[in-house]
Computed example of a mutant assay.
Amino acid sequence: MKPGINVPNVTFKTRVRDDSIEGSNPFRWEDKTSDDFFKGKRVVLFSLPGAFTPTCSTYQLPGFENNFAAFQEHGIDGIYCLSVNDSFVMNKWKEMQGVQNIDVIPDGSGEFTRRMGMLVAKDNLGFGARSWRYAAIVNDGQIEAWFEEPGISDNHGDDPYGVSSPENLLEYLENQKQTEAA
């Protein structure tokens, strides 16, 4: 993916809270499209191999959560975390991580990830098809800036992390701000 490319138009199967539903699981299915997440907004999208995994849970998700205000100062309307996990998993992970500012996008079938060119096999870890780690700044559905971890390949022996970190994206946004001011 390169800047200037539109994100794929797909439908995501999400579960949303509905207080009209009684019981211990007050959620209903709601289809959301790429437009629901990206149209008319400037957002950060970051994708990772899986909810509940060490790097994702220890660094990446908390890093974006803790820097939410700094991203807003740079004109970012929202931050989305996408993974090839179903909505049940993504919602529970968000809850258990205590995340308040980041919205999760469940790409359970991997369709968005595949069409982004980022679907890789992680059979060596027993994961199956998952997303390669990346981040993007998306402006009204179009990729403005792209941050992909090096070495994309099936069954990669390592889990590179750094290029797609919140700190790296904030550095990019700060440099962009300084360039525009000059």
Results as ranks from 00 to 15, higher is better:
Lys2Tyr: 11
Pro3Cys: 04
Ile5Arg: 14
Val7Asn: 00
Val7Phe: 06
Asn9Trp: 03
Lys13His: 14
Thr14Cys: 10
Arg15Pro: 10
Val16Cys: 04
Arg17Tyr: 14
Ser20Leu: 11
Pro26Tyr: 00
Glu30Cys: 02
Asp36Ile: 00
Phe37Gly: 04
Lys41Asn: 05
Arg42Tyr: 02
Phe46Glu: 09
Ser47Val: 13
Phe52Cys: 05
Thr55His: 11
Thr55Asp: 12
Thr55Val: 15
Thr55Gln: 12
Cys56Asn: 10
Thr58Tyr: 14
Gly63Val: 08
Ala70Pro: 00
Gln72Pro: 03
Glu73Leu: 09
His74Tyr: 11
Gly75Ser: 02
Asp77Trp: 02
Asp77Lys: 01
Gly78Leu: 00
Cys81Thr: 01
Cys81Arg: 08
Leu82Gln: 08
Asp86Arg: 08
Met96Ile: 10
Met96Gly: 07
Gly98Pro: 00
Asp103Phe: 06
Val104Thr: 14
Val104Pro: 09
Asp107His: 02
Asp107Leu: 09
Gly110His: 08
Gly110Leu: 02
Gly110Trp: 10
Leu119Tyr: 06
Asn124Trp: 01
Asn124Ser: 03
Phe127Tyr: 12
Phe127Gly: 05
Arg130Phe: 01
Ser131Met: 06
Arg133Ile: 03
Ala135Ser: 12
Ala136Pro: 02
Asn139Arg: 14
Asn139Tyr: 06
Gly141Thr: 04
Ile143Val: 15
Phe147Glu: 08
Phe147Lys: 08
Glu148Phe: 11
Glu149Asp: 07
Pro150Leu: 01
Pro160Glu: 07
Pro160Lys: 03
Pro160His: 02
Ser164Gln: 07
Ser165Asp: 13
Glu167Pro: 02
Asn168Val: 03
Asn168Gln: 12
Leu169Met: 01
Leu169Cys: 02
Tyr172Ile: 05
Glu174Phe: 11
Asn175Thr: 12
Gln176Phe: 09
Thr179Leu: 14
Thr179Arg: 15
Ala181Arg: 13
Ala181Asp: 14
